[in-house]
């Protein structure tokens, strides 16, 4: 295996924005872009790249049975997410498909464990860490901003915490998961990794009107701690 630290498809965008990176596990994430206002920004409207964080997926008729046998708590129906003991988030995409997203701090232990073991019958792994990029949109104006790029009503009183929408964001197929950071609204957006830069640019453009912009994971950590 190469020992390269994993970089995001968006790393050139981050470098151009003056990002300061931090190492988490064997990956690099943007810690901040050098602004002292990033926490306030994240509370108002911000975009965060989480693409290099661990995640995995399991699919197939036996997937939920197998995952349950491995101690994974399964959301009760499709298009719901459920927080796990190790702070990872299990997103149920259909009757037979799970997506598991790591927490930042601490990194989820469950994902690496599940990935390293032999799966059960009628269960198949999905390379979710490579197939999708993972962005987070945070802040009180997040839903308003989304209404410029997404046809699903994501307003907080209509789209509850841990709700999931498989839909189109800026005409790219996407998985949208609401997973608040403490009291701050937060929406994860996962879309085809090859469209990462396209989506990033669309979201930055849509945010301008609300003075939104990119922030690093340092502010995300702060917000989670505040809750």
């Amino acid at each position: 295996m190469t020992t390269l630290l994993r970089r995001s498809q968006l790393s050139r965008r981050h470098i151009a924005l003056g990002a300061e990176f931090e190492q988490i596990g064997d990956t690099l994430l943007v810690s901040n872009y050098g602004s002292s206002e990033e926490i306030a920004q994240a509370k108002s409207l911000a975009l965060i790249d989480l693409s290099t964080l661990p995640r995995t997926g399991f699919k197939g008729a036996g997937a939920t049975t197998w995952a349950t046998s491995q101690g994974v708590k399964i959301p009760e129906r499709p298009n719901l997410a459920l927080l796990q003991k190790d702070q990872s988030l299990v997103v149920r995409l259909s009757y037979h498909e799970l997506l598991i997203l790591s927490n930042i701090d601490p990194l989820s232990t469950q994902i690496e464990r599940l990935d390293s073991m032999a799966v059960g019958p009628q269960t198949y792994t999905l390379p979710r860490a490579d197939s999708h990029c993972w962005l987070a949109v945070t802040g009180s104006q997040a839903a308003e901003m989304f209404s410029k790029v997404c046809g699903v009503d994501l307003r907080p009183h209509k789209f509850a915490n841990n709700a999931v929408a498989q839909t189109s964001v800026a005409k790219a197929s996407a998985i949208v998961v609401r997973h608040d950071l403490g009291t701050t609204h937060c929406f994860y957006v996962l879309t085809d990794v090859s469209a990462a830069e396209f989506l990033w640019d669309c979201l930055i453009d849509a945010m301008l009107e609300y003075d939104g912009g990119p922030v690093g994971v340092a502010s995300m950590r702060e917000l989670a701690a505040e809750g």
Partner: peptide
């Protein structure tokens, strides 16, 4: 403002740096 998703391979910038003329084939 309309959305035309554009997709790039992980090697995209290596082509650009090598002086490639890029074309858009579908997305």
């Amino acid at each position: 403002r309309s959305f035309y998703p554009a997709r790039r391979s992980n090697m995209h910038y290596r082509h650009v740096e090598a002086g490639a003329q890029m074309l858009q084939a579908g997305e």
